[in-house]
């Protein structure tokens, strides 16, 4: 059997909890599936106990997206904060069967879970994007974003090659929040020579048409938070 590692399509999403990393990952999975890819979404979050990809497993699977998370179950009704990762994860970088998306836990300790798979991932042309939310106290300045980025890279043993500006205040988000994140993301991009890939936002909440935003505009639906919460 030959490993067509050059054909592996793998996008890893990292960022602080609250950055909106899972919301982006899930929306991105749906978008890639709609674009005709055979998508598998892996929940590698060992940091957050709630608001996780596995909570909408049924919706994802209904669209034909494969959900990979814990060996102990993929459903919200089997909550675990144990690092019980599924060996199915290897499918994402040892085969070219899937367009893989990996949603990684919300801090450098969470990225440690990724480190275990780094040897396999390094053999592929992976992308690792870091989500920036300028309204999170831990990532509100260039310095703190860079320090966070360094922590993620050290623990995951992988390199970030793109940023996503996903600055928000949940339902109080205004265009000004996104523009604040835009300024921060551009500064981080300049400091690192790493491009901003996307600016993402909830389309029902803010109209960003007519703004010059870094990277590709990525309108999203709010999927991880029920309307009443």
């Amino acid at each position: 059997m030959t490993n067509k590692l050059d054909n592996v399509q793998l996008t890893i999403i990292v960022g602080h909890f609250g950055s909106g990393k899972t919301e982006f990952s899930v929306n991105y999975a749906f978008k890639m599936q709609e674009a005709g890819h055979n998508v598998a979404l892996a929940d590698l979050d060992i940091i957050n106990p709630y608001f996780r990809t596995r909570e909408i497993t049924d919706d994802l699977e209904a669209k034909g997206i494969r959900v990979i998370s814990s060996i102990l179950g993929n459903k919200a009704s089997h909550p675990m904060d144990l690092p019980s990762l599924s060996p199915e994860l290897n499918l994402l970088f040892q085969t070219d069967q899937y367009y893989g998306i990996i949603d990684v836990g919300g801090n450098p300790e969470g990225a440690r879970a990724l480190g275990r798979f780094s040897d396999g991932i390094k053999k592929t042309n992976y992308n690792m994007y870091m989500v920036i939310n300028a309204n999170r106290p831990e990532t509100e300045t260039v310095e703190t974003v860079l320090a966070f980025m360094q922590g993620i890279e050290e623990k995951s043993k992988l390199k970030i090659n793109g940023f996503i500006n996903n600055t928000h205040l949940v339902r109080e988000t205004t265009p000004e929040d996104i523009l604040k994140g835009d300024r921060l993301s551009r500064q981080v991009s300049e400091a690192t020579s790493i491009p901003v890939m996307f600016t993402s936002y909830i389309e029902d909440m803010v109209d960003m048409s007519g703004y010059d935003l870094a990277g590709e505009a990525f309108p999203m639906k709010m999927l991880m938070r029920p309307e009443w919460l």
């Binding site: 909890f17 609250g18 309204n135 106290p137 928000h168 205040l169 949940v170 109080e172």
Partner: peptide
């Protein structure tokens, strides 16, 4: 200005 925090973080920060 408002920041985005988890309830746990806000309890601690306050």
């Amino acid at each position: 200005a408002k920041k985005l925090m988890k309830g746990n973080e806000a309890l601690a920060a306050a």
